[in-house]
Computed example of a mutant assay.
Amino acid sequence: MINNPKVAVFGSGSWATAIIKMLCENLDQVGWYIRNESTIEYIKENQHNPNYLSSAELSVDKLHLSSNINELVDYADILIFAIPSAFLKSELDKITIDISTKIVFSAIKGIVPESGLIVGEHFHKNYNIPFENIGVITGPCHAEEVAMERLSYLTIASQDAKKAKLMSKFLASNYINTKISDDIIGTEYAAMLKNIYAIAAGMAHGLGYGDNFQSVLMSNSIREMKRFIKKVHKMKRNINNSAYLGDLLVTGYSVFSRNRMFGNMIGKGYTVKSAMMEMSMIAEGYYAAKSAYAINEKNKAKTPIIDAVYEVLYLNKNPKQIFKKLTELLD
């Protein structure tokens, strides 16, 4: 492990911006890859991101900003990726430098559509990065509350406890509590799955179901998540811990949840295309639903909620009819 490793964040959305804010609390310099040069110039002049989390004041004097992804890959020892999963491959394809010796942390809550893999597995398989050099940054934590410096919690997962502790130290502050885990596969799948369940919660709300049904939906969701993750990566874990249940609850219930918002629009009668056009942010659960459904066709876990979301989003089934069937399958 390198002494005083350099860190760079890749992505310019709300979660990437929140991570930059957290890192700047503890580090003297942080690299930040932003694809759009005009966004970089705006940040330099105005100390905040014009498009996402604009209320967060950024320590511009600590930022090494660049629109050249290879420059930041070369600069940093630890690479934190917070690019939406749907666009990750196209950005990675720009990298011409060997990254097999880098430490990679995923802050992406989704599956890479082209490979059907969670981000850590994608880096391991396609870039020869050993699992001990891969980590996951997960919640329960909304970027908007980080911007407001409201007390938030992060789980940092890595097979190498030293790397997890180091990243925890880089992100912790008086408003960020961190804990570590060795379940890199399980926490990353949980971060992906909870977005699907948040879409289901949003659909239910849009269809007029109340709090009583939502509580049943969420309690069934955590049990379904447990069954799914156990099939893909069996190890001892407490599914009621914050990285699993906590992240599910905040994404399912919060007004800041873009996946719940997306589902709510679908429940109210929007088409998938019109809901996406109206939202200015990516709903990761849309892409995750297709990938999770495909993965589970092989694993055969009992997943009625994932199946329901998939049928509405990808088979154009009627949400009202699908949720009427779903109510009979939940307990």
Rank of each mutant, 00 (worst) to 15 (best):
Y314N: 04
Y42V: 10
M225G: 02
A56K: 03
I185R: 02
Q47W: 11
I80Y: 00
A172V: 14
D28F: 05
M218S: 10
A294S: 11
A164P: 10
E91P: 00
K236T: 13
I199M: 04
F10A: 13
D28N: 12
F105W: 02
D211G: 09
E114V: 13
T155C: 12
E114I: 14
V272M: 07
G206K: 02
N264K: 14
A292T: 09
I43T: 05
D182C: 10
F262I: 08
K226H: 15
I185M: 08
Y287T: 10
S54V: 02
I69H: 13
N68M: 11
N264M: 13
V250L: 11
C141T: 03
F105A: 00
K44R: 15
K317W: 03
R223D: 11
E278W: 03
V216Q: 14
G252M: 10
L65S: 13
K300T: 06
N241V: 09
D247H: 04
A204D: 06
A308E: 01
G120W: 07
E114K: 10
D93L: 14
D160T: 15
C24I: 08
T271S: 14
A82C: 06
I184F: 02
D307R: 10
N264L: 13
E45D: 12
L193N: 00
S274N: 13
I97A: 05
M203I: 15
Y209G: 08
M261P: 00
L88K: 05
I229V: 14
F81M: 06
G285D: 01
L245D: 00
V272P: 07
S85W: 05
I80V: 12
A204K: 06
L58D: 00
D211H: 15
H142M: 12
I40W: 04
I196N: 04
M279E: 03
N318P: 03
P304D: 06
K230Q: 15
K230C: 10
G208F: 02
I83N: 03
M192V: 11
R223T: 09
G252H: 01
G116R: 09
K290G: 10
N49W: 10
L72H: 08
A289V: 04
M261F: 04
R258W: 04
S257K: 14
V255E: 07
N51W: 00
D211C: 13
L248K: 01
Y293E: 09
S14V: 09
A243S: 10
S14F: 12
I134L: 15
P319T: 00
L151F: 12
K21R: 07
R35W: 11
G206P: 03
G210P: 09
N49E: 02
V255I: 09
G139Q: 07
G246I: 15
G267K: 09
N212M: 08
L313H: 03
S106E: 01
I239M: 07
I78Y: 05
M281A: 11
I19L: 13
F87P: 05
L63T: 02
G246M: 02
S280C: 08
I78G: 03
G285Q: 07
E121Y: 10
R35I: 11
V73G: 12
G252W: 03
D331L: 12
A288Y: 01
I134P: 00
N126W: 01
D61Q: 15
I295N: 01
N259M: 09
I180H: 01
